[in-house]
């Protein structure tokens, strides 16, 4: 089962249409129907059933998730291969001791690969859609795979199956989600 984790503020669920459903649509196109859970409602059963998870982004003004890192400690176990998108990447960095700094980017920007990795294979440089007010500064437990002129854009944990991307792959870079699924899910293309 592919688990999509909704990081949007529950008080304002209109963002779910914008940040979770487009990712669900990409997953569905790979032939699997994902299970969507809000991060405050994740159960042990959900985590045990998940073969991989995607932590979705949030609206520009929505940073509530960062005050609830205790809800994301399951990432530390590294049992579920996970892809953090924007807010999801910030959570990953923080859970492993990293920092979040002011740093906004909005719109299409150029991302350059700085370290080879199966996720970015053949992509030395690509244009990506950004929508963030803060940028993560991960600890050395993560390798930096790609960056923009302003901040780190793609990370991978040194030993656990965890990736983070700061840009929004649902816009013009669906291949990122598809490759992540391909890397960790048998039977998906």
């Amino acid at each position: 089962m592919i688990l999509l984790v909704d990081l949007c503020n529950r008080t304002h669920p209109l963002s779910r249409d914008e940040f979770v459903l487009p990712i669900a649509h990409i997953v569905e196109k790979s032939g699997t129907t994902p299970v969507i859970r809000h991060y405050t409602q994740l159960s042990r059963e959900d985590c045990e059933a998940a073969s991989c998870s995607i932590l979705c982004g949030t609206a520009l003004k929505d940073n509530e998730f960062i005050h609830h890192l205790d809800e994301f400690q399951w990432l530390k176990e590294g049992r579920i291969p996970s892809l953090g998108i924007c807010a999801g990447m910030q959570v990953m960095a923080k859970v492993f001791g990293g920092k979040i700094e002011q740093g906004d980017e909005i719109g299409m920007i150029m991302v350059r690969t700085v370290r080879e990795d199966p996720l970015l294979e053949g992509k030395q440089e690509f244009s990506a859609y950004e929508l963030h007010s803060f940028a993560p500064v991960p600890t050395d437990s993560f390798l930096v795979l790609a960056a923009s002129s302003r901040c780190v854009q793609v990370i991978r944990h040194q030993s656990l199956p965890l990736y983070g991307v700061l840009f929004h792959p649902e816009v013009r870079n669906e291949w990122v989600v598809q490759r992540f699924l391909h890397l960790f899910m048998e039977g998906t293309d």
């Binding site: 304002h12 209109l14 963002s15 249409d17 914008e18 459903l21 487009p22 649509h25 609206a59 520009l60 003004k61 929505d62 906004d104 909005i106 719109g107 299409m108 859609y129 929508l131 007010s133 649902e170 816009v171 013009r172």
Partner: peptide, 26 residues
């Protein structure tokens, strides 16, 4: 992206939320 990015910037500058419920919908 042209429309969305520009509206997002206006909302950021005015400290307003921005919602796009049809963004990349099926």
């Amino acid at each position: 992206v042209y429309q969305a990015a520009r509206i997002q910037k206006i909302c950021r500058d005015l400290d307003l939320w921005c919602f796009n419920p049809l963004w990349h919908t099926d």
